[in-house]
Amino acid sequence: MKNQLVKDALVLTVITLVAGLALGFVSEITKEPIAKAEAAALAKAYQSVFADASEFEPLEGFDADAATQIGLAAEGNEGDNQITDCQVAKDKDGNDIGYIITVTTHDGYGGDITFSMGVTNEGVMNGYSITSIDETPGLGMKSTEEAFYSQFENIPVGAYTVTKTSPAGENEIEAISGATITSRSVTNGVNAGMAYFEALENAGSGDDADASEESADESTEEEGGESDE
């Protein structure tokens, strides 16, 4: 009886050990392809939101926590989201032409949505590209389709709100029908990213008073629009 117990335990241990070794081996050989696939997906996302750029470099001294705080304090950001990465976009001569800001929002309908948005130094958003999403097909998944994301293309930096009717003001984004939660969480994330971009610009050069004044105007308009809802 006792022998049987020892034998059972031994066999199970051997099986587990062999399985562990095999797993380690597979993990080792797939490490590189996985890293490559992830890098390729990211590069594709960056390129799609910043077609003019030929090179991307991580922003020096990027602090995700500080960036997230700036994002959360942003005008029009009512969501729970994080700024997880920021890259400097450079043209082929090596000049800085804008930023790629990666935002993860935690209030999507099916969990986190991560997207990268490209903003040029002129304060124009090129658009966003979603790298990780798990929304409902046919509803929230439409945020990856042109009809919705094209609303974020070539728009000035500011605070945006979601409307369920056709957009009346410049700072309104038309919600995906039946997927207001997804639309809101993406828009909140975009607002966070835009606020962080403004903070970067203000930190970078002192003569941005005009720009920030402009955005202040926009945000007052915004509040007016919101109270209507």
Partner: peptide
């Protein structure tokens, strides 16, 4: 024993899929 075997194969499939069919 069955669970260990099945779980190992699943994890391998997961790694391979992540690397080659992202």
């Amino acid at each position: 024993a069955f669970i260990v075997v099945v779980a190992s194969f699943v994890t391998m499939v997961q790694f391979l899929m992540q690397g080659y069919v992202p």
